[in-house]
Amino acid sequence: MTRADGAAPALPAGTLEARDVYRSFGGVTALAGCSLRVEPGTITGLIGPNGSGKTTLFNCITGFYQVDQGQVTFGGVPIQGRRPNEIVHMGVVRTFQVTRIFRGMSVLENMIVPLRQQTLKTLFRPAIGGHEQERAEHLLEFFGIVQLRTHLAGSLSFGQQKLLELASALMVGPKLVMLDEPAGGLNPIMIERMAGYIHELNQQGTTFCIVEHNMDLVMQFCDPVFVLHRGQTIASGPPSIIREDPLVLDAYLGD
């Protein structure tokens, strides 16, 4: 449920911490005591071979899955067991591996759906207009797609849709943005552009946690990097050290 007063309580600078998280699906263990720590101001990378549990961990942190065991806290406040929308209101927002936008809505409407907080009064206000529209257009401008604001979101190119998804996530005013493969499927030019935006937003104070397969990107932008393998965190640290870690090399090259 929403907070009655609609105001976000002052949170301590948001450190996200997942400790010893377990999660299994009907006998198949997806997470077996994995841990992750995202310090404020960082771009933290999360890598691992296919099926190592990265997306499951994302889902556990953002409330889409319940954790079987373990603790997830943000700014010291436990968040496991909360609904995804509550976690958003605490300052953690995520994007999806397969880009999800509202295809039948205009680009601008996509930006208006996200809710920072809700009271009955804001709910029944006209959707388009006012301060919120200004903010939306400002963000669209930042991502260079403001000229498409009246277009149907489903008619955008793949890359533009990815930008839109990130832009709409920022509308909730998050402290921490969790991106599931932001560069997945993008062409090299678009990847560079996306990386530039993330870098710039980070400079402005937004924390990121990124699942990504593009190693060059991870090694260039992320610090620290966490490595998952078979549902466990097998290494963490700055990219230069991760690159040399024998366990990591084993995980990627072994079996």
């Binding site: 449920m1 929403t2 953002t62 889409f64 609904r83 995804p84 929308n85 958003v88 209101h89 927002v93 995520r94 999806f96 999800r100 936008i101 509202f102 295809r103 039948g104 809505m105 759906v113 996200p114 809710l115 920072r116 809700q118 709409s168 996530a169 509308m171 909730v172």
Partner: peptide, 12 residues
């Protein structure tokens, strides 16, 4: 259109 996505954007 996308119930999970809406939830992930803070919509109750």
């Amino acid at each position: 259109e996308e119930e999970e996505k809406a939830e992930g954007l803070g919509v109750d």
